[in-house]
C-alpha cells in the first residue's frame, strides 16, 4: 500500500511524505491557518467544514500553541509550540483505518515489525462544544495519533460524520527517526549543506515564549483582548445575513470564528499565567464555547455549510 521502504531521514521528510500520501488519497492539501490555535482541530477547515452536508477532504500541518507546556526548550518532548498534522474527510470513508495505516507505512513504519493498536479514547473539546468517538493509536505502546469520528461540533450533530486524524508530528518523527530529545532531531536532511536540527530552528523561540507565556504576558491586556474578541465575534454575527452594499446574502461565519479562535488562545495564555481560578476556568470555557456554537450556527447558514438558497435552514 505504501510506496516507500526507505526510512525518512528528517522531520521535514516525514511531513512531506504525509502531504504526498494524503494528496494521493484525494485530500486538498491546505496550508496552516494564519492564527494562533491550540490544536489542528481549530483550523476552520476542520471545525467549520465538519458541519453541514457538503463532502470535504483536507489535510494540513497546523502549528499549535499550548502555552502551559512551555519548558524553555529543555524538556525532551514538551513544547509550547509544535506541529500537528491533521486530516479531515467527510463523510468518513469505510476504509479510513486502512488509509490511516497506509500513512504510517508511508512514513516508514513497517506494519510487520510494529504493534499498532486502536485503544479507546473518546474526544471532547469543551471549548468547541464538540465530541466524537474513536481511539488513540498506539505504536509499540506509544500514542502516535488521535482518530476520531466527529459526532457533534458547536452543538450541531455532524451529518454526515467526519473522520478526523491528528498526528503529533514531533513525537511521531522522534520515534521513527530514533531520537531521544526533540531538539536533537534533524529538521532537514542531515547531509544537507547546512544541516539544521529542530533545536536550531526552535530552541530560541521556545525559550523566549516560555518566559513570555509564564511571566511577561500582560494579563490585564489579555483580559481586555478576550473581552474585545468576544464582543467582536458577537457583533459580527449580529449583522443581517443580507449585505446592504452588494445585496448578496453574506453570512460572516469565518470572520466571527476568527474572533472565537482568538478568545480561545487568549484564554490559554491567561491560564498559563495562572490568573484563572478553578471556578473561573469553567466560566471562561463556557464563554468560548458559546462563541463556537454561534459560529457553527452561522456556518450552517452559509453556502459552504450546506445552506441552499430558498431554504430556511441547513440542507
Amino acid at each position: 500500500m505504501a510506496q516507500t521502504s526507505t526510512r525518512p531521514r528528517s522531520f521535514q521528510e516525514i511531513i512531506l511524505r504525509l502531504q504526498t500520501y494524503w494528496a494521493g488519497q484525494g485530500c486538498a492539501i491546505m496550508q496552516p491557518y494564519d492564527m494562533e490555535v491550540g490544536a489542528g482541530t481549530f483550523h476552520p477547515a476542520t471545525t467549520l467544514r465538519s458541519l453541514g452536508s457538503r463532502p470535504w477532504a483536507a489535510a494540513y500541518v497546523q502549528p499549535s500553541r499550548r502555552p502551559t507546556d512551555g519548558r524553555y526548550g529543555e524538556n525532551p518532548n514538551r513544547l509550547q509550540h509544535y506541529y500537528q498534522y491533521q486530516v479531515l474527510i467527510k463523510p468518513s470513508p469505510p476504509d479510513l483505518q486502512q488509509l490511516y495505516l497506509g500513512s504510517l507505512e508511508a512514513i516508514g513504519i513497517d506494519m510487520a515489525l510494529h504493534d499498532i493498536r486502536f485503544v479507546e479514547d473518546d474526544w471532547e473539546s469543551p471549548t468547541l462544544g464538540a465530541w466524537g468517538l474513536g481511539w488513540e493509536v498506539w505504536c509499540d505502546g506509544m500514542e502516535v495519533s488521535q482518530f476520531t469520528y466527529f459526532q457533534q461540533v458547536g452543538g450541531h450533530d455532524c451529518k454526515p460524520v467526519s473522520g478526523e486524524l491528528t498526528y503529533g508530528i514531533e513525537r511521531l518523527a522522534m520515534y521513527v527517526l530514533g531520537i531521544d530529545h526533540v531538539m536533537d532531531m534533524p529538521f532537514n536532511d542531515p547531509d544537507a549543506p547546512i544541516p539544521l536540527t529542530y533545536g536550531d530552528v526552535f530552541r530560541q523561540t521556545e525559550e523566549e515564549y516560555s518566559r513570555f507565556n509564564f511571566d511577561t504576558a500582560d494579563t490585564a491586556a489579555l483580559l481586555r483582548h478576550f473581552e474585545d474578541a468576544e464582543a467582536e465575534c458577537e457583533a459580527i454575527l449580529s449583522q443581517p445575513h443580507d449585505d446592504p452594499k452588494t445585496g448578496n446574502r453574506i453570512v460572516m461565519a469565518h470572520p466571527a470564528y476568527d474572533q472565537c479562535i482568538k478568545a480561545s488562545h487568549l484564554f490559554n495564555l491567561l491560564d498559563a499565567r495562572g490568573v484563572i481560578s478553578v471556578t473561573e476556568r469553567q466560566a471562561y470555557i463556557g464563554r468560548v464555547r458559546a462563541l463556537a456554537k454561534k459560529c457553527a450556527d452561522a456556518f450552517v447558514q452559509t453556502g459552504a455549510g450546506g445552506y441552499a438558497v430558498g431554504s430556511d435552514s441547513a440542507a
Partner: peptide
C-alpha cells in the same frame, strides 16, 4: 456510548 459514521444513520459502538 454509540456513534454514527460516514453518511449512514445506524448507531454502533464503532463503525
Amino acid at each position: 456510548k454509540s456513534m454514527r459514521w460516514g453518511a449512514g444513520s445506524l448507531r454502533w459502538v464503532r463503525p
